[in-house]
């Protein structure tokens, strides 16, 4: 496989230029009266005003404050971050939104996903979950659980979550509530119930295909109690329209092992943010490669070598 086509740095414009490329959704154009007059130094204020307008427009959609537990809303933990500046720059102000569904699609080829593709998608989802669990603040949050909905077809295909594997990933296995359902519809119900209960740090599920109705229900449930939902779906399935973000994740060669060039190193993901509510649609969805550090438990941008990753030279020793 060739190294990532785009240099990750080239597709992330510096903050200033990204802001200049900002184009508000339809409707913001006819609000000039609310906007201060254009001037060289007012640019930032102009943008701030536009953002506030958009935030107001989107608020009912996000279902800001229904009657949730007062303590949760008072905490003001607005979102969570990937811990990688380049990726976080793509997200809206508050990071990954708590009140939304985040869809993760493995990048399959020809409408199907191999085990490797699924593993990349699920690995990314598990790492987002690990980040969420570790970034959670507030009383009782150290023991807040996450839900992992795992319909039977997947468990027979890809196996069971393993305790030690989770621990190596930075997830306390005791905080994972496994729900194994024979059918997908039941997994959706379980996810929805988990989101509505408001007692979870996060609900994650693997669903082959979710229709608009199901996605909408999940979105509403996530917004109702501000519990984020991670949804891994089949690459061939049409993207659920109601999601806050959609990531496409492809498997990438792992990083450099610090001591052994023949050994696999840090896990890497080729990630593209295809859709992100609160960001312009015209956003560049080119993939970039992220690397998971399993000691600090956070993402970093993979450093690319000029000619791909160093690999063992097999013929060097002769035969």
């Amino acid at each position: 496989m060739e190294p990532a086509a785009h240099s990750p740095f080239s597709l992330l414009p510096p903050r200033g230029s990204r802001r200049s490329g900002f184009a508000g959704p339809a409707g913001t154009a006819d609000l000039p009266s609310a906007v201060p007059a254009r001037g060289g130094g007012d640019r930032d204020r102009l943008l701030q005003a536009l953002r506030a307008t958009i935030a107001n427009l989107e608020r009912p959609m996000l279902g800001a404050s229904p009657a949730g537990p007062s303590t949760r809303t008072a905490l003001q933990d607005d979102g969570w971050w990937l811990g990688c500046a380049a990726a976080d720059a793509l997200l809206p102000e508050c990071g990954l939104s708590l009140a939304g569904v985040h869809e993760i699609k493995p990048a399959g080829s020809a409408g199907s996903a191999s085990a490797g593709d699924w593993m990349a998608g699920l690995g990314f989802a598990l790492r987002l979950a690990a980040l969420r669990l570790n970034q959670l603040k507030g009383p009782g949050s150290k023991d807040a659980m996450m839900l992992w909905c795992w319909p039977q077809p997947f468990s027979s295909e890809l196996g069971q979550l393993s305790l030690q594997g989770l621990a190596h990933m930075g997830i306390d296995p005791a905080r994972v509530l496994l729900v194994e359902t024979p059918r997908q519809s039941e997994a959706l119900t379980a996810l929805e119930e988990g989101l509505k209960s408001g007692r979870l740090a996060l609900a994650a599920g693997v669903i082959k295909d979710v229709d608009l109705n199901g996605a909408r229900r999940l979105s509403l449930a996530a917004a109702a109690r501000r519990t984020p939902c991670l949804l891994a779906t089949h690459p061939a399935a049409s993207g659920a329209a109601a999601t806050a973000t959609r990531w496409r994740v492809a498997v990438a060669q792992s990083g450099q092992h610090p001591f052994d060039c023949k050994a696999p190193g840090k896990a890497r993901f080729k990630v593209a943010l295809e859709r992100c509510r609160g960001r312009p649609q015209s956003m560049d969805a080119a993939p970039f490669v992220m690397e998971w550090c399993d000691e600090t438990f956070r993402f970093g941008l993979a450093t690319q070598l000029a000619h791909g990753a160093a690999r063992p030279r097999r013929a060097a020793y002769g035969s």
Binding site: P69, T181, E186, S197
Partner: peptide, 28 residues
């Protein structure tokens, strides 16, 4: 520690086990 119970998963576990069966909802 006000609000510590906000993340108490007990009622959710009860509800899910009740609906899906005890064995379907588990911890490692």
């Amino acid at each position: 520690e006000e609000g510590a119970a906000a993340y108490d998963p007990g009622p959710l576990i009860d509800a899910l086990s009740n609906r899906l069966g005890e064995k379907a909802v588990c911890v490692l």
